[in-house]
Computed example of a mutant assay.
Amino acid sequence: MFPIRDHNPSGRTPFVVYALMAANILIFFSYLGIMDDARLLNRFYFDYAIIPARISDGVAFETLLTSMFLHGGWMHLAGNMLFLWIFGDNLEDEMGHLPFLLFYLTAGIGAGLIHVVTAPDSVVPTIGASGAIAGVMGGYLLLFPKARVDILLILIVYFRVFTIPAFIMLGLWLAMQFLGSLASNPDEGGVAYWAHTGGFAVGLVLCIPLWLRRGGIDFWDRTHGHPPHPEHKYKLTQSRIPKVPRK
């Protein structure tokens, strides 16, 4: 189950979201040629990925920033860019361009620090924009909890697109990350669940002042938990998505 779009166009062109997506894609292409060379790739990750043990030793703090623009493969990159594209534009619209950029970078650095704190002796390189994007999702949940998001559900040979409120989709995502945080061992590699969980919390907290300036609970009452612009109506609705039964 993963989101494919929301129904909430932004009121301004999300230049920062586009720039961040371009930066991530171009940087990925810049080292794509060494992906099959383990020695070169390991050296590259040593220089630019988060390695908690190094930061615990008081060095390589710059990797908290550089690691946010690295990805381990096509699906890693595509998944992160999809989430950024879906949820980032509305937050940029609400915050403004420069404040959103600062918010994004702060959430990513905060997620990286939380990952270091939870695995201070790990020598496993950690890369990806998912900590920062988790922060975007946390802010989106606070500001637009009832925004409508289209979800693609795939169960073996059954697939279905349906629409649910953002708080359900994001709440389920956060719950899965938190459970993964409790069950995983960061020293063994894999998904950096604590970075996801921590980034989400950092993004939500960073958005509290904006939410309060908009009126807090009154802001929810005025907007009914939706972004301020009229919903986009897609021609392809859930009633026209076929069900494929199991044979």
Rank of each mutant, 00 (worst) to 15 (best):
F2W: 12
F2M: 15
P9R: 08
P9A: 12
P9F: 08
G11S: 07
A22L: 06
L26P: 04
F28A: 07
S30R: 05
Y31Q: 08
L32S: 12
A38G: 05
A38R: 08
L41A: 11
N42A: 15
I50R: 01
D57K: 06
G58Y: 01
F61G: 08
M68P: 00
L70M: 13
H71G: 04
W74N: 10
L77F: 05
A78W: 09
F83T: 12
D89P: 15
D89K: 15
G96E: 08
P99G: 05
Y104N: 01
L105R: 03
L113A: 11
S122W: 06
V123Y: 04
V123T: 13
P125S: 14
T126L: 13
T126E: 11
I127P: 09
A129H: 06
A129L: 13
S130N: 15
G131N: 09
G131M: 12
G131I: 09
I133M: 05
G138S: 04
Y140C: 02
L143Y: 00
F144Q: 00
A147Y: 00
V149T: 02
I151S: 01
I156D: 01
F159E: 02
F162W: 03
I164S: 06
P165C: 10
I168C: 11
L172H: 00
Q177N: 15
G180S: 09
A183E: 12
P186H: 03
G190R: 09
A195M: 09
T197V: 07
G198R: 08
A201C: 10
G203P: 01
V205C: 01
L210T: 14
R214Y: 08
G216N: 04
I217K: 04
R222L: 11
R222W: 07
L236D: 00
R240T: 07
V244L: 15
R246G: 10
R246K: 11
K247T: 11
